[in-house]
Design a protein around this nucleic acid. Structure first.
Lengths: 276, 276
DNA sequence: GAGTAAATGGAATATTTTTTCCATTATTCG
DNA sequence: CGAATAATGGAAAAAATATTCCATTTACTC
């Protein structure tokens, strides 16, 4: 608004928009400021909301929200929304065009790669969204919260997940033990009856993890599992099974859904402990 | 279509829809099958696309796509889209209502928690989407691909990320060393001039990681950094800096964006090596 | 404190999007 | 092979959504 040269041309990336909001929100009039603040804090809603929804949520009239978009340099809400929607779409024509330059300079088309992984991440998160999993997470948290110590097991790809869980539980003051390295099976003596186990394994499932879980299960210790598929044999030894289906890019799967799920799990365990 | 009782009432979760698609897609007529298949593979697009877009992408007329939605039990496309959009929105009225039951039974409101982390995940991924980061990732991959061995450093929260990267690089046949535990500083003798370092630290930044990176940098070894903020002191010692801003839920941050970014990085490094 | 400029909200309009309808084409079954 | 049923695509109608316009309010300047 202050600088017409800047606002005359629309931002070309989401980050541009956010930076712009950060910079200009101070000297904006009341209602436009409300738009700027709400949008800054909830920018992920632009792609899936109508102007009216954004305007209501910001506490302003739809016409004001449109004017807000225009003050950012867009022709209106639709144009801004298109930018925010672009990242979800397979076809990113604009994006592709801009990447072309990179490719010519001998780049490895990394931009496309990152876009693909981001898209896969969104997909993984969407498929994580469902009631049954919420309820399973709740029961898992309840079960694990009763344990004296939670034994964390996961090898190879899954190791990163239990590593993260171990850090979080430690920070939250929940007692846990991280099992790793070869010969984890031999450590089953250290697991007592009032403990619990959280085992993670992805397809192709780790024999070692499965056998460890089985052994512990036979001792009467409750086992809780996380995997990427319902076909995981952990379901036979687990009291409760969490599934995080991860979308793949060129044969590689980022653990996006798993890390969100287990972070939520850590907080839920703590919450469940507090309640007792 | 075959069973009117089933299709008469709309699915209430995204997973319901996907399961339904899985089950019924075989015996569907040609065009509806196209809709089912495209939607199954690209369900994340429903929230951000118009019928025409979905129809075009499926290779059918808009009217056919609407009929497809109706065959799933929805009144039309709009109703189906509302379901897919719900998970992005702060206000999940329907969802909340269903969770209420859980809460009463003494649950810890875990369902809400998981929803919050999923939403935060989407947000983190959205803010990761921008050109500059794509280009920085590309340069980082190029730089690291030239190293004899990549030294991975990250403590506490960041450890999970380097752990994952270590696994991926190993699987890809790229030489790397994972540094961990106390006294990592002493291991700097093992880092040679034609190596490179990838250091990860999140706010509040780990002194140990920063000093390690600095020391290695002084030896003339290229350092590449990943953090959650531009304020990270790693930028002074790093040749290139990657930023993954993570959204928080109740003071906790899931490493959603970081894990997507580093998974893409691993693949990009391999791609860069192949090219030389 | 009056006059001017900017900001605002609601209503009217324009545009886009969804949905229904129907004529045409394909498929199934006798 | 022909009749009946189902499926399809295009176009018209309906609905929802975005945008503009303007009267009113608010803030600022002198």
């Amino acid at each position: 608004m202050k600088d017409d040269r800047l606002s005359a041309q629309a931002p070309t990336t989401v980050t541009d928009v956010l930076n712009h909001l950060e910079a200009s929100s101070l000297r904006l009039p009341k209602r436009l400021k409300q738009c700027a603040e709400f949008t800054r804090d909830n920018f992920h809603l632009v792609a899936v909301s109508t102007v009216s929804e954004m305007a209501n949520a910001s506490g302003v009239a739809p016409s004001v929200y449109v004017r807000f978009c225009q003050s950012l340099g867009f022709s209106g809400y639709s144009e801004m929304q298109t930018l925010f929607r672009a990242q979800y779409a397979d076809q990113r024509p604009d994006y592709e065009a801009r990447i072309a330059a990179l490719r010519k300079e001998g780049g490895v088309e990394t931009g496309k790669l990152m876009g693909d992984f981001i898209e896969a991440g969104h997909k993984s998160l969407v498929s994580l969204t469902n009631m049954e999993m919420s309820e399973a997470l709740d029961r898992t948290a309840q079960g694990l919260s009763k344990a004296r110590t939670i034994h964390l097991v996961g090898l190879r790809r899954a190791f990163c997940i239990v590593t993260n869980l171990s850090y979080l539980l430690d920070k939250l003051g929940v007692s846990s033990t991280l099992h790793f390295g070869s010969g984890i099976l031999h450590s089953s003596n250290s697991i007592l009856e009032d403990d619990a186990m959280f085992a993670v394994t992805y397809s192709p499932f780790s024999e070692e993890t499965l056998r460890f879980a089985e052994e512990v299960h036979k001792k009467g210790v409750p086992v809780f599992g996380l995997s990427d598929s319902f076909a995981c044999p952990l379901k036979d030894t687990s009291q409760e099974m969490l599934i995080a289906r991860e979308d793949e890019v060129a044969g590689f799967r980022a653990l996006t859904a798993s890390i969100s799920l287990t972070t939520a799990l850590a907080v839920a365990i703590k919450a469940a402990q507090k309640q007792c």
